[in-house]
Design a protein around this nucleic acid. Structure first.
Lengths: 331, 331
DNA sequence: TTAATTTATGCAATCGTTTTCAGGATTTTT
DNA sequence: AAAAATCCTGAAAACGATTGCATAAATTAA
């Protein structure tokens, strides 16, 4: 497979590169016969314009960056699928970076992507990110940014999120309808937007069903597995909840592990709910039910907004916030 | 964050772009004073050479492509982590494509990456790929290829694989030492290199321990979950093995699902082994033990070989085949 | 037949960087 | 003091594509 340039074609057909270029782009200035000649030859030798040359010319890389906490997480890998399908179908490629829940890594990722001259980025914030100064720095220089899933509170950006409130409400309500009254909620640090929204959904469901909110049943857990372990131990030694509802993939897994470490097995009649996209939750013991987010769609929508923005001439002035529905997967 | 070019620096300091370029690359031709002046100014305005311009000049994109069957699979996402760490630390970026176990998609991925002018690719073959003609087409035009995990039989390529034989041997031996004698092996199509190697390990362990090989206990399963289902049903209705050993992530999951669909639960004293990197296998019911591959390392090594090759002047003549050890994770 | 118009093509600049070549200025050698 | 060597710098070409401008050739109008 040989790499062919415009110049090669021009030489072969005894034309100038400009004529060849125009012929291929079907310019009105070029004779039909010439066009056909060029088109046929180009096809024969399998000509493809060098995307790097085009990038240099247009000052556009036709690449977008994605920053997620972790690829090895079903939610994010599904979201990435959505992003890639949208991007590839529109001729963009995708550079993926992981923040590993670290603000420092997130900053490095941004710098790397910026230096690589990506046209814009999609980002789901790290768990340690409390403000977005580092992102604002870049977002001036016509460097478009769209947030998804874990988004900042401040306005002025496009965002795509799940309906965290309703998802948490539905899960909590489901547990209540199963007759549960002491539902523990184990959640992430309050710095994350999703934490607050899910907590509100949980509280609202209790309220609607006339169950008093017991703050002892709500625990915040950072990223250290040990935290989850001691939280679970506390719960089992004191509160003995009759159901669990955790806020994330990671927390659900840490809690399951904490249970495995205890002598007394997790009671089978204590249902466990997670806000996760784990595609194997139904194989867990005890069963793990989940609030599932439309991760693929979320990625695709976020990518679409970004690319639309990149390709539109006028500067956007109003910013979309798209909220996608979740659904329950009962195991 | 402003984007600065050589020309900007040249204008500001009243020098020519060539002098600035040379100063920054510490050329012996440039006066020390000038060098210092330029270096300081460049640092102040945060100059970064435009990678796209460099790519065009060098005819190198400093990007590598990765083709895997599926990102949403722990083995591959861990391998990608290894690839990205190696690549980013050496100033390359990574374009990820998924073949979704389809030969057609794999061909499209190749075409896409080639047109994108990546300098080389890392590939783990799709389950439908039986020959590598489509890859050979490209591998001429100084387009380096390194295979990992699922590699072709033919020589003439760099390869990084797990010691599939030993892994399968160890798992089978473990089951035998647990007193199991009728160990079912459910495996992928024989077109995949890993299938054969793992099957050989399984057979060898039986042989070493004086257990006759029963071909009725060996079943090949494609990618359709229904196949796994009927395989499991067949086994449970007739052979009733006293242990299971599956060849892949996917097969292990399909089998677990098949068991869930049956009335009679999977007997708890029938141990189940998978050749997978599932990081939640210990939370399954019944327990899933696994042969774990060093996925991160595999990705990293493969990337290193590829990048070393890209950066070496002389053409490689002998091709490495690196075999990495697996380990058992008993749940 | 000559001028005006249309048609078809090529030249050259551009994007940002590197690098070859050339040359001016300064210093050293004779 | 002239020739040679050394040092520093800049102009220009190259990478591959696009595009404004110029112009030659063909056609039409007068």
């Amino acid at each position: 497979m040989e790499v062919i340039t415009l110049k090669d074609i021009a030489k072969a057909l005894n034309l100038s590169t400009s004529t060849v270029s125009r012929a291929l782009r079907d310019s009105y200035e070029i004779n039909e016969k010439t066009k056909k000649l060029v088109a046929e030859y180009a096809k024969k030798v399998n000509f493809r314009p060098n995307p790097i040359a085009l990038s240099l010319k247009d000052n556009k890389s036709r690449a977008i960056g994605v920053i997620v906490p972790e690829i090895a997480n079903n939610f994010f890998s599904q979201a990435i699928n959505g992003i890639e399908d949208e991007a590839y179908s529109r001729g963009y490629h995708v550079v993926i970076c992981q923040s590993h829940e670290s603000l420092e890594r997130e900053k490095e990722n941004l710098r790397h992507l910026f230096e690589r001259r990506v046209d814009g980025i999609l980002i789901s914030l790290s768990g340690k990110t409390t403000d977005i100064k580092h992102i604002l720095e870049y977002s001036e220089s016509n460097f478009a940014v769209v947030f998804f899933d874990r988004v900042p509170e401040s306005g002025g950006f496009h965002k795509v999120v799940a309906d965290n409130f309703s998802g948490a409400f539905a899960a909590t309500e489901y547990l209540i309808k199963q007759g549960k009254k002491r539902i523990a909620h184990i959640t992430s640090p309050l710095t994350l937007s999703i934490t607050k929204e899910r907590l509100e959904g949980y509280k609202k469901a209790l309220e609607v069903h006339g169950i008093a909110i017991d703050n002892e049943l709500i625990k915040y857990c950072g990223f250290d597995p040990e935290e989850a372990k001691s939280t679970i131990n506390d719960f089992m030694n004191t509160q003995k909840p009759d159901a669990f509802f955790t806020c994330s993939d990671r927390l659900a897994l840490h809690c399951y592990e904490a249970f495995q470490n205890r002598k007394d097995e997790m009671p089978v009649d204590t249902p466990f709910f997670g806000f996760t996209n784990l595609n194997v939750s139904h194989l867990f013991h005890p069963k793990l039910s989940t609030v599932v987010q439309p991760a693929y769609e979320m990625g695709g929508r976020a990518a679409k907004i970004l690319l639309d923005q990149l390709e539109s001439k006028r500067k956007v002035k109003d910013f979309d916030k798209i909220v996608l529905e979740t659904y329950l997967k009962i195991s």
